[in-house]
Nucleic acid binder design. Sequence first.
DNA 1: AGTAGGACCTGGTGGC
DNA 2: TGCCACCAGGTCCTAC
Length: 277
Amino acid sequence: MPELPEVETIRRDLSAVLVGRRIEGVTLRRSDILRRTTPEEAAERLTGREVTGARRRGKNLIIDLSGDRVLLVNLGMTGQLYVRAADAEAAEHTHLTAVLSDGRRLFYRDVRRFGHLELCAGDELAESFTLRNVGVDAMSEELTPRRLAELLDGRTAPIKNALLNQSLVAGLGNIYASEVLYRARIDPRAGCDELGWARIEVLHGAMRAVLGEAIAAEGTTISDYVTGSGVPGGFQRRLRVYGREGEVCRAADCEQVIERIVQCGRCTFLCPGCQTR
DNA sequence: AGTAGGACCTGGTGGC
DNA sequence: TGCCACCAGGTCCTAC
């Protein structure tokens, strides 16, 4: 489940090995992973280009290429993007392999195929399939507590659902939404319109803190996620509520048991003692 | 416009 | 042991 910290880790790893390298050749094994891009366009717009940068917006990777072209990557649930040595074989479910100018290989692999790739021109980013509905990045300086309050204003949906809505704040998925609300001591069922200004400020701070710590730990590996160098993250050891149903809350003065509820068809974990409406 | 729910996809798991 | 229903979840689409 690559959420913001996982994608940021992949971005940093890939930035170090990809920038300045040229893509010598591309093998596409499945074309249904492409959006608004034909297989011919994919090969033509990648081959011979130099990687000039790697950016991120929410859970999306933006790989800048020479000639004002951009490769957009959304990893969905099980997507992986990593660089291996020249002699590395493509693992099962590898949908695209790119040979780099230093001989190494970039692999795009996705077991469940919820992810996708898109190629577009640099000035088409805002209208691209991948980014057209993506809101302000959760770690961006633009996301002030005031901006967050404006985004939540007038909404009746539970705060957990709003945090998962990428068109509002981009970057949180099911794991970090639960973790952030626990840190902010807010019940995930609380309506956006029930939160006062003070709690929104706390929520904003919790979002920065949890995501920042998760980035420092190189993300959370539950099953499929690997960093850009192909190794697991470390934040799974630091999760406070996600996946801890039935276990005792880790807060010092709390003896409550973590609960699991279903919201919007997704499981949510919370501490009934620490989190309130 | 905001909200809710189904669909997509595959591997792992638990039950019988 | 084998089979199968079920679950996980990011995001798009459709319907209200």
